[in-house]
Structure formats: C-alpha cells, structure tokens
C-alpha cells in the first residue's frame, strides 16, 4: 500500500496540465504551505508574533514578510500566517503556548495559493475583481479578502506586478479558470 501520508492530492490537480506561460500575465499554482489563522486582540497577537519571530503588520490590509514567512492582517483581530509547510507544526505549537486569549487554528489545507504575475496581471484580475488595483490604491504589501467573480479570495500584492491569491480549495478551480479566461486575450 502506498503511504497515504505521501499520496497527496493538490486542489488544482483536477486541472491537469497547468497554464501556458507568458503572454502578459503568467498563472501558476503555488506549492503547499503552512497556514495559520491567528485571532487575538492586537496586544496578545503581538506577544505571539514575538514568540514565533514574525512581526505582525500593524496596519489593516497589510502583509509583513520575513524570509519565507509572511503575516497578513485581514481584520482588526485577524492575521493569516503563511510559511513553508515544514515549519507548520512548530509554528502552531509556539503560537498556542503563548498565554493570553487567542485562537490559533491550522488552516493549511483549507486554501491553496495561486500566483498571477506580469505586466497584464492587473488587467486580468480586473476582469473579475472590483477593487482598484492601481499601484497607488493597492500598493505592494497590501492584502485583503475580496471577491474574484463569485469566489472569495485573499488577494496579496507581493511585488509590483505579482499577486498571490489564497483561495478555499473547492473554489480554486473556478478561480483558476476565471483567470485563464481573463488571460486569453493577452496571448494575442
């Protein structure tokens, strides 16, 4: 019997081949990651951040990146911590050990991540997302929950022309197909 722990199925496996590169905006599925939903009052959250060595962004809708880890502030008392999958368990353990009322929940498998990057990334997203993604309105480091078409996503501008999309796994194929539809005209 194959080791079921190793036999994983990526939420986007159903799509098969993947996306054609180039053409103004590239689309790719990102590898599995550790994800923790951290809920706490800001003071407690800061103590947790200190314990795990990942400073939390103080402004709403902003992300802090430290090495391979990132903290996204999605609500007044809500942060999404993202890191390499291997770091997951220890991160959660440390976070839970901090005294003070807080909620630390492992949501690593709840979502999957996509990345759309390139000079036309904003236009492709603009086919489905009603936010103003101009660099002045949605600068590098901004992140927020929003809608892409009819699916809720977390949209994070990680670089000038690069967006990371976190999406609940069952909505991932829909989001992927939307973005592919939006990319089509930029192959011309």
């Amino acid at each position: 019997m194959a080791d079921p722990a190793a036999a994983r199925v990526h939420p986007l496996a159903v799509l098969g081949a993947g996306s054609m590169p180039g053409a103004g905006a590239t689309l790719r599925a990102l590898p599995p990651a550790c994800r923790i939903s951290l809920r706490a009052d800001p003071q407690v959250a800061a103590a947790i951040a200190a314990a795990i060595g990942l400073p939390l962004p103080e402004a709403m809708c902003r992300a802090n990146v430290l090495g391979a880890r990132a903290a996204l502030r999605l609500g007044p008392d809500e942060w999404l911590l993202i890191g390499p999958e291997a770091a997951g368990e220890s991160l959660a353990r440390v976070a839970m050990a901090v005294p003070g009322p807080a909620s630390v929940v492992d949501v690593s498998h709840r979502s999957t991540a996509l990345e759309i990057a390139g000079p036309r990334a904003v236009a492709v997203l603009g086919a489905f997302c009603a936010l103003d993604l101009d660099a002045a309105a949605f600068p590098v480091g901004m992140c927020t929950r929003t809608l892409l078409g009819k699916a809720e996503i977390v949209l994070w501008r990680s670089a000038a022309e690069c967006f990371r999309i976190e999406v609940w796994r069952s909505f991932a194929p829909y989001v992927w197909n939307c973005l592919e539809e939006g990319r089509l005209e930029f192959f011309i």
């Binding site: 709403m60 809708c61 999605l74 609500g75 007044p76 809500e78 927020t144 929950r145 929003t146 809608l147 809720e152």
Partner: peptide, 12 residues
C-alpha cells in the same frame, strides 16, 4: 441606520 457586514473583507 442599518447594519452591514464586510463579509468578503475584514468580516466585521
């Protein structure tokens, strides 16, 4: 005066 929820945003 009505209530709204930023359900697909900060959730508040």
């Amino acid at each position: 005066i009505e209530r709204w929820r930023h359900i697909h945003g900060c959730g508040r």
